[in-house]
Amino acid sequence: MNQTINKYSKQIIIVNSIFILFWLTISIFPFIWTLWGSFKVKADFFSRADWTYALSGFNTLIETGATTTFKAYLESWTEGEFGRATMNTMIVTVSVVSISLFLGTLGAYALSRSTFKYTFYILIIALIFRAMPHITLVSGYLFPFFQLNIWGILPTTIIVLVAINQPFTLWLLYSFFKTVPKELDESALIDGCSYFQAFRYIIMPVMWPGVVTAGLFSMMLAYNDFTVTALLLNQHNYTMVPKINAYLGTVEYGGNYMWAVSSVVSATAPLFMIIWFFQRQLISGLTAGAVKG
């Protein structure tokens, strides 16, 4: 029966394939184009005269002697100090992911196991906090941080990103822990474990699927953040995304466009690779709140 329903006519298959190809072009082509263009010089990638220059590398050949060049990468990683920005991003991302998972699993476990009414209010407050635009929070941070003299350094940014990330992590892990049978840890409690021991020895071994999903989202937030990092870090401590923005417009780097283009590739490639491996977790996390209804 299922077979007949799901059999598609030839026309549908053709129209469908064309549409999918069209859609994939829209979503992927800009990235491929940027990757291609990052190996050219500015006069080719931003060519007013003839866009085919970007394909043939006309000016690149004149300026560097070959049709592809690593000049932009070399310069941005050395002169542009993009390596430092990469290092900062790694420090921030790893710290944010580990700290927010540590706080999140503890909190979400408690929320999922407590039967009192206040859990509900905590979750609602978390939902409200999650909706706050980050820039409004940043406008609240700056003044106190200046006064306390903790502006501009990585630890402050890490803590702020962890906090901003908590509401979503809590909700995600809360709905995950709800699917872990209560009987598991209840039996441990009856056998004389404390709640913490039950969490440590019974829940921790089975929580990894949920933790991986939550970790993935924490990683994306920390890795991609622009609002918080651009305003809370000083130039020296910039992570990758604000650094790319700095290449475009500031006096210091003289609007060096090709640096920005190559850095966009350097910053995006690892992210895409990670998502390629964890695609399933990403999708399950995105749909966690939606599909129940």
Partner: peptide
Amino acid sequence: FILPTALAMILFIGLP
């Protein structure tokens, strides 16, 4: 259990 995460949220989302 909830203290660390609540503290983070109050200090860095509520207070700001």
